[in-house]
Design a protein around this nucleic acid. Structure first.
Length: 266
DNA sequence: GTACAGGCAGTAT
DNA sequence: ATACTGCCTGTA
């Protein structure tokens, strides 16, 4: 969801556009509109990186990866955008996901002009809740359209309150997220880690599954090829226990590492 | 053309 | 509980 114009990068985060410029070799971040709370700080500048890195370095392989990719960070995405994005991502590939999200913004988001360039915000819950399946399908989300609409309705009518999930623990947040259409364990973990500040959430997708199989045989013995929901929970609880309270940060490094191993460039 | 990548939900055992 | 199946799009 990032685009470059005239040596600057622009990204969409919910109702906001984020601009990154390089000025005298330093990054300059500008939010449109301005930030009002740390909850919208996309780059997590409130994180105590020294403490987090020191904590996850206790695990030897992750300690190596920290040295290999010292600039890698978690981001704090807009919760609703994050939720819909990961529903779109189920059983899909990064180029396809990207195409869907761009079309959702263009079709149902609001147009804004910044530096003479046109951008579209991510559609709010009302916009997606009131959209038609046909409109959603025109954004190439395929069979995920009904789940996107149903989940947007749940957010819009208040039957789930994403903001309030920031203030409850991992288990409780997960339980609520799993009630949503199109949300299973993996999507719930992604939403919690990437938007709800649950740094102990550890999403297990096919890539992390491969990383666990390749490097953590002792930790997850007899790892099945495909994880049923029950097996996901078993694997999840053992890796979360092993990697500790910043397991999600460790996950980010493992994910990056295993994709590099496979020669993926997104 | 055709294979492949990629989680969730519904149904049957 | 577990196994199987269908679903849709973009890229190689």
């Amino acid at each position: 969801m990032w685009e470059r114009y005239d040596r600057r990068w622009y990204g969409v985060n919910g109702e906001r556009i984020i601009r990154i410029s390089v000025v005298n070799g330093k990054y300059e971040i500008t939010y449109f509109p301005d930030l009002s709370s740390y909850e919208d700080d996309y780059f997590r500048s409130d994180d105590n990186i020294a403490e987090i890195f020191s904590e996850i370095s206790r695990e030897p392989f992750v300690a190596e990866l920290l040295k290999a990719y010292p600039g890698l960070r978690l981001l704090r995405q807009h919760p609703f955008q994050c939720l819909i994005s990961f529903i779109c991502a189920t059983n899909s590939t990064i180029p396809a996901i990207r195409a869907s999200l761009i079309r959702l913004c263009r079709t149902l988001g609001k147009e804004v002009m910044i530096d003479g360039n046109k951008f579209y915000t991510f559609p709010d819950p009302a916009a997606l809740a009131n959209s038609t399946i046909k409109q959603l399908r025109s954004c190439s989300v395929g069979y995920r359209a009904p789940a996107i609409k149903e989940t947007s309705c749940s957010v819009f009518d208040g039957s789930i309150d994403l903001q309030s999930l920031r203030r409850v623990g991992y288990e409780q947040a997960r339980e609520r997220l799993l009630t949503l259409s199109g949300v299973g364990h993996k999507v719930a973990d992604c939403v919690m880690l990437f938007s709800l500040d649950k740094l102990d959430a550890f999403p297990v997708d096919v890539w992390i599954h491969r990383a666990l199989a390749a490097n953590y045989r002792a930790l997850v013995r007899n790892l099945p090829n495909k994880l049923s929901p029950r097996q996901y929970e078993i694997v999840s609880s053992s890796v979360r226990n092993y990697f500790g309270r910043y397991a999600g940060y460790a996950q980010q490094f493992l994910y990056y590492y295993i994709r590099n191993q496979a020669g993926r460039t997104w």
